[in-house]
């Protein structure tokens, strides 16, 4: 199997994007999932729907609105320009922001499920022993949600690797900046370079299969434990 330097560059960029997005989502989605798991607020339904939107929306729709919002005439774009920063569309930063939203449900939902399955009784028990909500989260909830964290991180990582529509809309196709592996495959096919497209596609296929296999074996092991 032959991969060109451009292919390696695309793979490197893809892995970098997926790592950054997974890390950012881990920090942002954990408190959000914790809030969703615990709250009785009426806003819960609204927020849950918002989080789940990327699951049903065509990525191009999401990308289109990001393009408008982040563009020079969009609300975010104007603010960014007022601060003297570079406009976000067609940059790695813009890609990261769009990907964070695109992969949000893949981080939030497994975490929320894991947090909910810990159950209020154990939280009450920890509180009665003098633990603050923070302490309970780090000593009881997080350790008991280990599998949830692993699943959420892997799904987010893999899903970010697999995105295409959002990337194309907001990131375009700039080598080394926004040309990730899925876009590179598209380029190869457009140029009728089928063997090159094959190499990269097969790599992603095997990678996705192995990763999902890990998740499912983790889950069945956890089910066997409990």
């Amino acid at each position: 199997m032959h991969l060109s330097p451009a292919d390696y560059q695309a793979i490197y960029l893809t892995l970098k994007l997926a790592s950054v997005v997974t890390l950012i989502l881990l920090i942002l989605a954990t408190p959000l999932a914790w809030w969703l798991a615990r709250t009785d607020s009426r806003a819960k339904g609204f927020i849950s729907t918002f989080v789940a939107m990327p699951l049903v929306l065509p990525p191009s729709v999401l990308g289109f609105y990001f393009l408008l919002a982040l563009g020079p005439n969009g609300p975010v774009g104007e603010a960014v320009q007022a601060l003297g920063w570079q406009a976000l569309p067609f940059t790695f930063g813009g890609l990261v922001i769009a990907s964070v939203f695109y992969s949000l449900p893949f981080m939030v939902q497994p975490l929320q499920n894991a947090f909910e399955s810990v159950g209020k009784p154990l939280l009450d028990a920890a509180a009665s022993l003098g633990a603050t909500a923070w302490h309970t989260f780090f000593t009881v909830v997080a350790p008991l949600s280990k599998t949830g964290f692993i699943t959420a991180m892997i799904l987010t990582f893999v899903h970010t690797i697999g995105e295409f529509g959002v990337v194309l809309m907001i990131g375009g196709n700039i080598p080394g900046v926004t040309r990730v592996a899925s876009v590179q495959i598209y380029d190869h096919v457009e140029a009728l370079e089928y063997s090159e497209a094959h190499a990269l596609s097969a790599l992603m296929l095997v990678f996705s299969f192995v990763v999902l296999l890990i998740i499912y074996s983790l889950r069945s092991r956890k089910a066997a434990e409990s």
Partner: peptide, 30 residues
């Protein structure tokens, strides 16, 4: 006053031990 500041001990019908901790760590939690 929130639960964790009341200093009231609780024993439930279902023991509610922390499943990921040993007996020793459960005992030492509070």
């Amino acid at each position: 006053t929130p639960i964790h500041k009341r200093h009231i001990g609780l024993v439930f019908q279902d023991s509610r031990l922390f499943p990921h901790l040993t007996v020793k760590d459960n005992l030492c939690y509070g």
